[in-house]
Simulated assay, not measured.
Amino acid sequence: MTSQPSPHAGQDEQDSPLLPSSVIEAGAQSSSALPAHLEGLADRARDYAEAASSANTRRAYTNDWKHFAAWCRRQNLPPLPPDPEVVGLYITAQASGAATANRKPSSVATIERRLSALTWNYVQCGQPLDRKDRHIATVLAGIRNTHGRPPVQKEAVLPEDVIAMLETLDRGTLRGLRDRAMLLIGFAGGLRRSEIVALDVGRDQSEDGRGWVEILEKGMLVTLRSKNGWRQVEIGRGSSDATCPVVALQTWLTLARIAHGPVFRRVTGQGKGVGPDRLTDQQVARLVKRTALAAGVRGDLSEGEREAKFAGHSLRAGLASSAEVEERYVQKQLGHASAEMTRRYQRRRDRFRVNLTKAAGL
């Protein structure tokens, strides 16, 4: 990719060459200097570059760059070339609340995500940012020590909660059948909300699909493409057809007349038809929240507290918290590289099963 001129402090962030869409456009401009017989390869290379990250990631990186560029403009500082001292001041402003209009400090997680976004954008522009520089690394370490807090986790929905949530859905409508299948597959598979909606009926059926399902005699095999490669998730048949994820999926696919392409789609025509469009992962989060509230899950809390407790991750955490099997099987199902990560999802487990105090003789 050809280098781009550095924008000055007064330049609008929309014109920055670091925005993902502009990076692609810059590649298109540079390809004009290539021999004609290489233009096709250049187009394909741009497609591969865009496929290196998800649409959600690119959207987040775009918004984070806009935030940084706007801050630079207000401080009369140039965002290019990458300057560790400027970036160090930026993350300091976020931690102290000086980077936002409402003076509200950003969380450590938000600061780390924005720093990752800046790093990615600078790399795409051919001007890497040195995150190990003391202006960044030391300041970030101090921010973590000063403002770091345990992560706020979403409430896990347990089996009895899922059953109650299913009862809030209408079995006589396509939308109700679709939502039942999503809840059951998400819970039994321990799937992320993005993994649920990315499924196709079969292999290589759509360009935006990131996995597919295969229904077998004893259950269902879900093949998923993740950041670290492909993995397979086994979802066995349930003890009852009413709560069986495989039966729920078969019913939805049959009545919705879906034999190819995305599994979970928008219901159209006042609930009587099914369109070609794939659902978004935000719709899974809204489904979990809506049905958990309707089912009265965590009724001991206020309405506002309950609404903040549930999201798509509630299904994944629910499986990890309720599956009475060896931890390594849960770890494999969730696709975690370490048992420690799996334990973060376990809201309900016997934490003192191994009592080292008594084992040590006290």
Rank of each mutant, 00 (worst) to 15 (best):
N56C: 07
E160P: 00
L80C: 06
V123E: 12
G176P: 12
N121L: 09
V86G: 01
P17E: 12
R171Y: 10
K154Y: 15
P20Y: 03
R344E: 10
G209E: 04
I185W: 09
L293K: 00
A311E: 00
E214Y: 15
N102S: 09
G27Q: 05
T251C: 14
R349V: 05
R225N: 12
H135P: 04
L301C: 06
R343K: 03
A98V: 01
M182N: 13
S194C: 08
A60G: 13
L169T: 05
A292N: 02
M165V: 07
L293C: 01
K358I: 08
L177E: 11
R257V: 14
D15A: 09
I111E: 04
L319H: 03
R298W: 03
R257D: 13
Q75F: 07
Q14S: 14
T146R: 04
T138R: 14
G312Y: 13
G176Q: 07
L77P: 00
R353E: 05
H336G: 05
V263W: 10
S239V: 06
C244V: 08
V284D: 02
A70I: 03
K332T: 02
T57N: 09
D47W: 14
D204V: 07
L41K: 13
V86L: 00
V267A: 02
Q127S: 10
L255G: 04
A101K: 14
R290Q: 08
L255F: 15
G229A: 07
N56K: 04
R134W: 02
S226D: 05
E112W: 06
D281V: 03
G312D: 12
A339W: 00
G186N: 07
H313D: 12
